[in-house]
Amino acid sequence: MLSKRLVVCLDVRGGKLAKSIKFVDTKDIGDPIAKARQYYEDGVDELVFYDITASRENRDIMINFVEEVARQIFIPFSVGGGIRSVEDATRLRNAGAEKVNVNTAAVKRKELISEIARAIGSQSTILSMDIRKVDPTQEMPSGYEIVVNGGVTPTGIDGLWWAKTGEELGAGELVINSIDADGTKDGYELNLTRMIADSVGIPVIASGGAGKPEHLYDVLTEGHADAALVASIVHYDEYTCRTLKEYLHNRGIKIRLNY
């Protein structure tokens, strides 16, 4: 049986680790590669690097960054932020990223998902979604809306519809990021996560809201997620990956502890 996964997300800005609160007011908190290595040694199952500047000029910096990460850590990691083409995805993959995350560019042109999946495989194509709660309407019957550009621009697209569409187009995994919960430390958006996890046949990574170990337990059980993504609770040394995983293990979650 596959284990549940602990995923740590590192927001990267010009090669520096950044932490955002509700997507604004980012501050630098250290060297992302040193942090990544620390989490690797502490047993994280997967890492996500998000390039929050994501400009074209930064693309080469990001490729070099990915190559350096690949020399330092020997578990799967993915890269996201500003991936707009098959070429972007292929270059990052060749630099050593196991998977790539697409978000805004896929909302603007959904064929990008199938193009990337054909080029590097569905198993390496992750669709990340930033989602906020809205009042259900005819256009958005699930009561959740996709927002883009780092969570600031509403799209009028229904969150559940987009998740299912992403799967049909070839995404091999979904990151469900609740921008309402992001940065609050009050727990993941369980209803949203479960609704999507129950509607697709691909793994779901829950994101946004982790503040204590119970939140991870809740989203991996009640929320039906395959993986729980955390950021600030490990970046500021409140918890280590090891303590989070031991907590989950002690509550009966199958998770990797030997390393």
Binding site: M1, L2, S3, R5, D45, I75, P76, S122, Q123, G172, E173, G201, I202, P203, D226, R256, L257, N258
Partner: peptide, 30 residues
């Protein structure tokens, strides 16, 4: 259960081999 089988899973040795020397119950691989 999904296909592809993707993620960490336990590997159990069923007979000894020098390359699996020291593998413990609960050891997981990607």
């Amino acid at each position: 259960l999904k296909i592809p089988h993707m993620g960490w899973n336990e590997v159990k040795a069923v007979q000894p081999h020098p390359l699996l020397d020291g593998i413990q119950p609960g050891d997981e691989f990607y």
